[in-house]
Amino acid sequence: MTLALHVTGLKKAFGPTKIIRGVELQVARGERHAVIGPNGAGKSTLFHLISGRLPSDAGQILLHGQDITGLAPHDIFNRGLARSFQVTSLFPRLSVFENLRAAAMRTHGCGHAFWRRLEGFAPLRRRAEEVLSLLGLERRRDVLAGALAYADQRALEIGVTIAGGAETILLDEPTAGMSRAETERAVTLIRRVSEGRTLVMIEHDLGVVFGLADTISVLAEGRVIASGPPDQVRGDPAVRTAYLGAAAETLA
């Protein structure tokens, strides 16, 4: 079986500080995979390396068996991997609808056309409408993204990530800063948008992680120290000492 994502020996240092120290990560096609770990473990850096935002120092990243190491972000996207950002990264002066439409343009045959009307791309418009209703933002359709409430911006962040229909999706702390109710709404949304796709997400909220993930990888000090089904990871003694600590007591 080809893995959706296969990371081997990945390393990244910023100056003398080694952030990623040889990460091994295997994500099976179609699974929901959570990456957890204490602050500073290198989770976001790992996402930056996989998505091409940062170049790695060593190691290899395979996407469905294809080597994507060292490719530019747009090349990686065009091979079927999309990502969201921990700090919301939208097009603030475009409307919600235009954000979604821009996000889906690449995969709906728009190219760089300046001789065809955007309105003429009917499947593109339908896709943007579809994601809009998936997000439950129909009533915010023509509001500028920069003027949205925080939770709505976070939802749109997910919408922009999935609008292009990428097979593999990386979500970087999709529920960060959300209230209980907002988190529940976000979890429902993530469950729906990851249907039939491969999802890798960084998440701090362990309730969300254990409720959503098929597999959990624990990142600590730049290495994956455990990876497996939630029950196995929960019982792993290395994980308990390295990360879960007091939280493990309450979960057990």
């Binding site: 091409g52 935002r53 530019a72 097009f91 002066r93 343009m105």
Partner: peptide, 10 residues
């Protein structure tokens, strides 16, 4: 609005 994000949209 956001040149970096455009890269992650292909």
């Amino acid at each position: 609005d956001n040149p970096e994000r455009v890269g992650f949209l292909g």
